[in-house]
Amino acid sequence: NQESVVAAVLIPINTALTVGMMTTRVVSPTGAPAEDIPRLISMQVNQVVPMGTTLMPDMVKGYAP
C-alpha cells in the first residue's frame, strides 16, 4: 500500500509547506504520494488543511503529481 502525505498540524490557507507540517499514512482515497514530500516543501496550500487531513493534489498551488 502506498503512503500518502497527511497534515501533521493545522495548516492555514496560503501557508508554505515545511517538512514538519507533513507526515505519511496509508489512507483511502490516496492523496499526494509520500515520495513527493521534497517537491511539496515551500509550496503553498490554497485552503485550510486540518490536522490529520490527507493532502490532495488540488490543495497545493502549482502541484501536479
Rank of each mutant, 00 (worst) to 15 (best):
E3M: 13
N46R: 08
S28M: 13
R25D: 09
S42V: 07
N46D: 05
D58I: 08
V27Q: 03
P12C: 09
V48P: 11
M59F: 06
T18M: 08
T53E: 11
N1I: 12
A16P: 14
M21I: 07
T18K: 11
M22W: 00
Q44I: 15
P57D: 05
R25N: 08
V48W: 13
V5E: 01
S42H: 12
V19W: 15
A64R: 14
R25C: 10
P50T: 09
N1S: 14
P50R: 11
D58N: 14
R39W: 09
T53Q: 11
I37W: 04
E35R: 15
Q44W: 08
T15N: 04
A32D: 04
M22P: 08
M21L: 02
I37A: 00
T24K: 13
V9G: 01
S42K: 07
M43T: 02
L10C: 12
M43Y: 00
M43D: 02
A8D: 01
Q44A: 07
R39F: 11
M43I: 07
Q2F: 15
M22R: 07
L10V: 07
V26G: 05
A7K: 01
P29M: 07
T23P: 08
V9M: 12
Y63D: 04
A8R: 11
A7L: 07
P50S: 08
D36I: 06
A64K: 15
P12F: 09
A32Q: 04
I11P: 01
P38L: 09
P29E: 04
V48R: 13
T23I: 12
P29I: 06
S42D: 13
M22F: 00
P12L: 09
D36E: 06
P65F: 08
R25V: 09
P57M: 04
N14V: 07
L55D: 02
I41E: 03
A16R: 15
S4C: 08
E3R: 11
T18F: 08
M59R: 02
V60I: 15
V48G: 02
P50N: 08
T53F: 11
V5F: 04
M56V: 03
P38Y: 11
E3Q: 13
P57Q: 01
V49S: 02
M51P: 12
P33E: 00
T30R: 14
I13K: 15
Q47T: 11
P29H: 00
A8L: 09
V48M: 15
G31L: 03
I11F: 01
A64W: 13
V48D: 15
T54S: 05
A34S: 07
R39H: 11
P33H: 06
V27P: 01
G52V: 04
V27I: 05
E35K: 14
M22E: 09
V9D: 01
M21A: 07
T30N: 14
N1E: 15
P29T: 02
I13H: 06
V45M: 05
D58W: 15
A16S: 13
G62C: 10
A8G: 03
M21K: 03
A34M: 05
M21N: 08
I11Q: 01
I37R: 02
M56K: 04
I13E: 14
D36F: 05
D36P: 03
G20R: 12
Y63I: 03
P65V: 12
T18L: 09
M51R: 13
L10W: 12
I13W: 05
T15F: 08
P33W: 07
R39M: 12
V6L: 07
T15I: 07
P12R: 09
L40S: 02
T15E: 05
S42I: 08
P33Q: 03
Y63A: 04
M51T: 05
V60C: 06
A16G: 08
Q47M: 09
N46V: 10
V45S: 03
Q47C: 14
G31P: 01
E3L: 13
G62H: 07
S4E: 04
Q44C: 12
P38S: 10
Q47G: 04
A7M: 07
R25F: 08
N14Y: 13
T18A: 10
N14M: 08
A32K: 03
V26Q: 12
V49F: 06
K61S: 12
P57E: 05
I37T: 02
L55F: 03
P50G: 06
K61G: 06
G52Q: 04
P50Y: 10
I37Q: 04
P29R: 05
S28L: 11
V27N: 03
T24I: 10
V27R: 13
T15D: 03
P33A: 05
T30P: 15
M59P: 05
I11D: 00
D58P: 04
E3V: 11
S28Q: 13
P33K: 06
L17W: 01
N1L: 12
V49W: 05
E3I: 10
N1R: 10
M56D: 04
P57F: 06
V48S: 14
V5G: 01
G62E: 07
V5H: 04
T30M: 15
V49Q: 03
M21W: 06
V9K: 07
M22H: 07
T15P: 03
L55V: 06
N14C: 11
S4Q: 03
R25H: 08
V19F: 15
L55Q: 02
N46C: 10
P65R: 10
A16H: 14
M43K: 14
N1G: 14
T24N: 04
T24P: 09
T30A: 15
S28R: 09
M22G: 08
N46S: 09
V5R: 01
D36N: 03
A34P: 10
G52T: 03
V6F: 00
Q44D: 04
T54G: 04
A8M: 08
V26Y: 13
S4I: 07
V9E: 11
A32G: 05
A32T: 10
M21S: 07
L55W: 03
T18H: 05
V49M: 02
V19N: 10
N14G: 12
G31F: 01
I11S: 00
R25M: 10
T54M: 00
V9Q: 11
A7T: 05
T23A: 10
Q44M: 14
Q44H: 15
N14L: 09
P33C: 06
G62L: 03
A16Y: 15
T15G: 06
S4V: 07
I13P: 10
G31R: 03
D58T: 13
N46P: 01
N14H: 14
A64D: 11
M22D: 09
M56L: 10
Y63L: 04
V49D: 02
L40H: 01
L40Y: 03
G31M: 00
S28E: 13
G62N: 12
V6S: 00
G31C: 05
A34Q: 04
I11C: 05
D36W: 08
E35T: 13
A32S: 07
A16K: 14
V19H: 14
S4L: 07
T18W: 09
T24W: 09
T30F: 13
L10Q: 07
P12T: 09
M43C: 15
M21Q: 07
A16V: 12
Q47H: 02
V27H: 02
A16C: 13
T24H: 10
T24A: 15
G20T: 13
D36K: 01
N14S: 06
T24G: 08
A8K: 12
A32I: 15
S4W: 08
D58Y: 15
A8C: 09
G62Q: 06
Y63M: 06
V48Q: 13
V27G: 05
K61N: 14
G20N: 13
T53L: 02
P50A: 10
R25W: 08
N46M: 09
A32W: 12
P57Y: 10
G52I: 07
N1Y: 12
L40G: 03
P65K: 10
Q47P: 00
I41T: 02
M51K: 15
V60S: 05
I11R: 00
P50I: 09
A7G: 00
R39D: 06
T53W: 11
V19M: 14
A7W: 07
M59Q: 03
K61E: 13
A64N: 14
T30C: 13
A16F: 14
N46Y: 07
A16T: 12
V45T: 12
N14K: 03
V5W: 06
G52W: 08
P12E: 11
A7R: 01
I11K: 00
R39L: 11
T53D: 10
I41A: 02
A64S: 15
I37K: 01
T24C: 09
R25K: 13
N46W: 08
L10G: 03
V6I: 14
Q47E: 06
M22V: 09
V26R: 10
V26A: 11
P12K: 10
A34F: 05
V49N: 01
I41V: 14
E3Y: 13
Q2P: 12
V5S: 00
Q44G: 03
V26S: 10
V19G: 09
G62T: 01
Q2H: 13
E35H: 14
V6T: 03
V19C: 12
A8W: 07
V9Y: 00
T24S: 14
V19P: 11
Q47A: 07
A7P: 00
V26D: 07
M59W: 03
L40P: 01
V6A: 01
T24Q: 08
P38D: 09
M43H: 11
P50D: 08
T15A: 12
I13C: 11
Q47R: 12
V5N: 01
V45K: 00
T24L: 09
E35N: 12
P12G: 09
T18Y: 07
